[in-house]
Amino acid sequence: MAQDAVTPPSLVADCGSCFGLCCVALRLDESADFPVDKPAGEPCHNLQEDFGCAIHARLRPTGWKGCTVFDCFGAGQQVSQVTFAGVSWRDAPEIEHSMYAALPVMRQLHEMLFYLHDARRVSPDGALAAAYDETVAHTADPPERLLALDVTALRARVSPLLRSASAAYRRTVRRRLSNVVPRKVHPGADLMAADLRGMDLRAADLRNAYLIGADLRRSDLRHVDLLGADLRDADLRGSDLRGAIFLTQPQLNAAAGDASTEISPALVRPSHWIERGEFAPGSAEI
C-alpha cells in the first residue's frame, strides 16, 4: 500500500528541540543570502542563549534570506536529542566538533529518508522499504559510527531506486491522463529564466533541472519529478504542484509563489509568499 502523503514528524525541522546547530555548525558567506561572513563552528551573533534566533521574524528584510531557505529535514533535533542524548555543545564543549560534523551527515540521511518516503507514497516496492529501514537505522548510530558512515555509497544504492519509482509512477500517470502532451524537457535541462507560463508539464522528468528565475506562472506541474531541481526565484504563482514527487521544503522556500499556488499537504506554504489580492499573477508589477 502506498504511504501517507504527510511527511513523518521526524523529517520536519523542530528548532525548539535543536541546539541551534545550523546557526553554529554551518559556514556563511556574505552574499545576497547573508549579510556577513561566518566561519563554520562559530555561533551566529543572532543566536540567543535559549538557542532561538533574535531576528527570526525579520530574517528576509534584514538580509538573512538564506536562513529562510535552509531546512535540515529534522536532522538538527536528531543530532541534538538522539545522537548526543540531549547534551548541548554549550554544556559540553568537548563534543562540539563531533556534533557540528554530525549535522551535515544526518541531514543527508534525513533528506534521503524524505525522498524514500515520497517514493513509497507512489510505489509499493519492497526494495524502497528496505532502503528506508536501513537509512533509519543509520540515523540512530552513535557519533563515531555516524561520522564513519559512507554516505556516498548509501546514496549510490538509493538513487536508482528513486529513479525507478519515479519512472513507474509517471508512466502510470501518463496512461491515466491520455491528453498529456510530451514536452521537450529532460533531466538537467537548462531552463534558467525560461518562459514556461501556462505550460502543461504533467509527469515530466525535471530532476536536476536549472529553473532559476524561470517563469512558471499558471503551469501544470502535477506529478513532475523535481528531485534536485534548482527553483531559486522561480515564479510559481498560480501553478499546480500537487502530486509532484521529490519536491522539498527548501525548494519551495527558494521559489516565489502565492496563495493560488497548489502544493502537496506534505509541504508548508512559505511565509514569505505573497497572498492573493496584492496583485494578480501575470500582472505588470513583476
Rank of each mutant, 00 (worst) to 15 (best):
S31L: 00
S166G: 11
I263M: 11
A167G: 06
R222G: 15
Y132D: 08
A255Y: 01
L216E: 11
A92D: 15
L236M: 06
P61N: 08
N253I: 00
V24Y: 10
P281A: 12
R242C: 02
D133C: 04
L11D: 03
V82K: 08
L196T: 03
A102H: 08
L236Q: 05
D215N: 14
Q78V: 06
Q108G: 15
V24C: 01
D233Y: 05
D235E: 13
V6G: 06
P142A: 00
D4M: 07
A156T: 05
G52K: 05
G277H: 03
I263G: 00
D233E: 13
S264R: 09
M1H: 10
G238F: 06
G41T: 07
I274C: 08
Y132A: 01
E42K: 08
K184A: 12
H97R: 09
D33V: 02
R27D: 07
Y169L: 04
D225V: 04
G213S: 11
G213R: 02
E111C: 02
Q108D: 13
P187A: 06
L11A: 02
V224A: 15
N253M: 01
D200C: 01
D150G: 00
V69A: 12
F114Q: 01
V158G: 02
A255Q: 02
R217P: 03
I286K: 13
M112P: 07
A92V: 00
V87I: 13
S31E: 07
Q48M: 11
L116C: 07
L221D: 10
T172E: 15
L59Y: 04
E144F: 05
H223Y: 15
L161N: 09
L161R: 09
A140D: 15
R171E: 14
I95G: 08
H97T: 14
L146V: 01
S159I: 02
D200S: 01
V122H: 07
A193E: 12
E49I: 01
L252M: 04
R58G: 09
A229P: 14
L113S: 03
G74S: 00
Q81F: 05
G213Y: 04
A266N: 08
E134V: 05
R60E: 14
L252G: 07
A167V: 06
V6T: 11
K65L: 14
H223N: 15
F70C: 06
Y210S: 05
L149E: 10
F51Q: 05
A244M: 06
A32L: 07
H272M: 09
V151D: 12
G213A: 08
G243W: 13
R217F: 10
F246H: 10
P35Q: 00
P124E: 13
R60K: 12
D190Y: 10
P9C: 08
A5Q: 13
A92L: 06
